[in-house]
Design a binder for these strands. Structure first.
Lengths: 152, 152
DNA sequence: GTGTTTCCCATTGACGCCCATAATTACCCA
DNA sequence: TGGGTAATTATGGGCGTCAATGGGAAACAC
């Protein structure tokens, strides 16, 4: 399972290319598609990204549960339809599609934020504002660690 | 399960490198990532550290519960985005990122404090102050031992 | 053709890897 | 028990490699 940690601030060049952080690329190594799956996050001005593997599992999960339901239709409409497969070039860069640039207001800098099994791309300022807010809300939220597997 | 005990005071060289105490490195041996996961502790000027295994479990815990929820987003923004994977060099040293140095005010010395399943890195003076305070509050608190598992 | 995208190469600065040294600890053996 | 030796640790520094970035030219689409 891929794990994305830390935040990186990278430049967007005049062709619209951005380097995906090397550690993120490493976490995606060995997947069927050499790049990322990206779609506009619902409710916040950021881009959600992960490997093609996770998208396939997501697709399968939705497929299992409720075929032809409203929920299925909604998810399909909001996620699958707006998703983009962004391939890495030789240097590990991706090209941000027009729609995603518009959604995030990204201009000359892109902030990559690790989010565990996925990562996000933000306008630097928007992320800082969001993080401030999130820090407050996360106070008092607790997470129970699931029991350790055998070993460790 | 890794167990970190005792405290150590090590030098930060001019490149920003610090040796992680050998006993801590030994406790992390055999994990998937040869290094530590580190993030700024909330509320106190220290760095929380543990192995990648623990972070993977944390990621899985959150992943299970709620996909695309606000809760998931808030936690991600505060935990995963602020954490760093710090790899050991050949001599068992790590490089402290700018953000963590700023959070702790660490300059030329770093204090490593064992904390059971995790450990912390402090500015030596800040740790002494914190310890003074904690000793007072610990009066009257008690801990129940959990029954031993088979073996050990 | 014109505009876009993909591939390739150059640059630079940070980081990883290697070696050297010193000090401490662990170990062995008389 | 004492001394000596070997091994490990903490530390310093040099250098090669790789990541991030910029730009040109070829391939492609409309």
């Amino acid at each position: 399972m891929a794990l994305f940690l830390s935040t990186y601030l990278n430049k967007v060049d005049r062709k619209g290319r951005v380097s995906v952080p090397a550690s993120f690329r490493a976490a995606l190594a060995g997947q069927a598609f050499h790049g990322v799956v990206a779609f506009p996050a619902v409710g916040v001005p950021s881009i959600d990204c992960f490997g093609i593997d996770r998208m396939e599992r997501l697709s399968a999960s939705i497929d299992d549960i409720d075929l032809f339901s409203d929920r299925q239709r909604n998810l399909s409409a909001t996620i699958f339809a707006d998703s983009h497969q962004l391939a890495f070039d030789g240097e590990g860069r991706i090209l941000l599609p027009e729609a995603l640039v518009k959604h995030t207001q990204i201009a000359d800098q892109a902030l990559f934020a690790g989010a565990g099994p996925s990562f996000q791309i933000w306008h630097p300022d928007a992320f800082r504002r969001y993080q401030q807010d999130a820090r407050g809300k996360a106070q008092g939220l607790s997470v129970k660690l699931r029991p350790a597997e055998s070993g460790s």
